[in-house]
Design a protein around this nucleic acid. Structure first.
Lengths: 160, 160
DNA sequence: TTCAAAGAGTACCATTTTAGTGCTATTTGA
DNA sequence: TCAAATAGCACTAAAATGGTACTCTTTGAA
């Protein structure tokens, strides 16, 4: 159900490589050959990651990319946001479509809240943890806090 | 990031209607008109839900559909499983594709574990809660339990 | 000062997935 | 026996996704 696009997966791979490689600059071609991904694809992803502020780029000869901040300070949510934008879970939005039943709309907002909850949880998982460094602290999370909280049936506008 | 197909959303709407309507039988046409969805679409979805065991069907004249069990006993995970199957979060599977870097594969398994964690959480959210009945108990959940747990880099085979 | 390396930006195409529709068979109550 | 209703296929159209190509800009070094 939770479908992440391949590109987001690739982006994680790229970030993981940069994290392990340290602070030096790495060209897109370098990253591509080390990860087994295509150069154009890596190039495109690094651009997106740079725009999102997760990596910094240096143009010109001898240029390249590097992590913008330590892996501990990059969350799973950051990566996903960078690649897929602040998308919501459902499409029950579009103010022009009128739901016939009260319950219908309530359902929509419930999914929204679950989505929010999951995003919150992913904010607590760092790239560091994703890579697999042992001994990193484990954040606690309460899904129902957001899924069940009575924020009212107002917040249902977010489109995908 | 968490993308749910429209059909899954519709299915929730349909289940919500059935839950509110009580134990009587409802035809696909009835559900369609009440939810504003197309009859063929509703028909298709009810079929899938019946196969998944979330609703029971009665064939023939005066037939129809009804919830197979109380709304409290149907989880968000059930609905998603019924519509989208047991899909995993990433595609870094396919044993024929060989990851070049150790870290790369570790990343894949980390996403898998996060996925598992989220699914576990959704199992604790009932249709009842989705519909919006107040006062339902709020399950607690620990995302990092599964996301950070050292299950080892073995479990990475699940394909989408 | 010129050249080449490397990122930035844009546009495009192929593939896959998703959503929706139509038709026929089967069951079953009146 | 008829009609209401689900069951099961198969098919088509549309949208998202992934990947590629091409051109522009920046900048270090010869």
């Amino acid at each position: 159900m939770l479908r992440m696009s391949k590109l987001t997966d690739y982006a994680t791979v790229i970030l993981a490589y940069l994290a392990r490689a340290g602070g030096e600059l790495h060209t897109a071609a370098d990253v591509a050959s080390r990860t087994g991904l295509g150069v154009p694809t890596v190039s495109k992803l690094l651009k997106l990651l740079a725009q999102a502020g997760l990596v910094t780029s240096v143009r010109g000869a001898q240029g390249g990319y590097q992590l913008a901040r330590p892996a501990e300070q990059i969350s799973a949510a950051d990566v996903i946001d960078a690649l897929e934008g602040p998308v919501a879970i459902t499409a029950c939005s579009s103010a022009d479509i009128q739901c016939e039943l009260e319950s219908v709309c309530r359902v929509g907002s419930a999914w929204q809240r679950i989505n929010t909850a999951i995003r919150l949880a992913l904010k607590d998982v760092s790239l560091d943890q994703l890579i697999g460094s042992p001994g990193t602290p484990r954040p606690r999370f309460d899904l129902a806090e957001a899924a069940g909280a009575d924020t009212g049936p107002t917040a249902r506008g977010a489109s995908r």
